[in-house]
């Protein structure tokens, strides 16, 4: 299936490079759900996730003429998205924002972790509270990672990508991605142990 997608993407990219807008929109549909999911989990904000999503695909559209198939379109679009997400994380770290509180597309403030807990724990309020607390601790621990560690951990642990692919997306080697994952895991384990 992945291989079939790769071939389809190549044909679609070629069409889009010739100016076919529908071909580009088809490409968008191949990846937009994954892009939105990644941005949403990293930013914790629908509004910011939508901004990243839009900026990423607009950049891809404007620069498609210069795409030379040196990597797959999948890697290329993820590279754009991860760069935008890294910028977002860096800005947040500078601003020291409260991560769990976020705003949705309508500007309403809501608690990201509360939403996570509600969906998973059903009608058990005690379990729900525990999950919420634990979710908050994890979010705090994740904030202690450097932006790059956060990104490698996100792409590996949450998005399930291979470290070789992660390396390509972040313009680094598989070995560096492995070391970064190791560091991120160690930091998270000790941060979570301290919080217990």
């Amino acid at each position: 299936m992945a291989v079939q997608n790769r071939i389809d993407d190549t044909l679609l990219v070629r069409e889009a490079q010739r100016g076919n807008r529908s071909a580009f929109e088809e490409l968008v549909r191949h990846y937009d759900q994954a892009v939105l999911r990644l941005a949403l989990h990293l930013t914790g904000s629908e509004h910011e996730a939508q901004d990243i999503y839009q900026e990423a695909f607009l950049k891809a559209y404007k620069n498609l003429g210069r795409f030379r198939f040196e990597c797959s379109f999948y890697t290329w679009i993820y590279r754009i998205v991860t760069n935008l997400c890294l910028d977002n994380i860096r800005k947040k770290q500078v601003r020291k924002e409260d991560a769990p509180v976020a705003t949705d597309a309508e500007g309403e403030v809501y608690d990201v972790l509360a939403q996570v807990a509600d969906k998973r724990s059903g009608a058990d309020p005690e379990r729900d509270l525990m999950r919420r607390e634990l979710g908050g601790k994890i979010a705090q621990a994740l904030e202690k990672l450097t932006p790059r560690e956060r990104m490698v951990f996100e792409l590996k642990h949450y998005q399930g990508l291979k470290l070789r692919t992660v390396g390509e997306m972040l313009n680094t080697t598989e070995e560096t991605a492995k070391n970064t994952l190791f560091r991120a895991t160690q930091k998270l384990r000790s941060a979570l142990a301290e919080m217990r």
Binding site: R21, V28, R29, Q33, R37, Q54, L58, R131, Q159
Partner: peptide, 24 residues
């Protein structure tokens, strides 16, 4: 697991697609 990845809701996805189309 408690901080797991959530799929974007269909409404949110549709809204994002429409905004992107406008921008394109």
């Amino acid at each position: 697991a408690p901080f797991s990845v959530q799929e974007p809701s269909p409404n949110f996805l549709t809204d994002s697609r429409m905004k992107l189309q406008e921008a394109l």
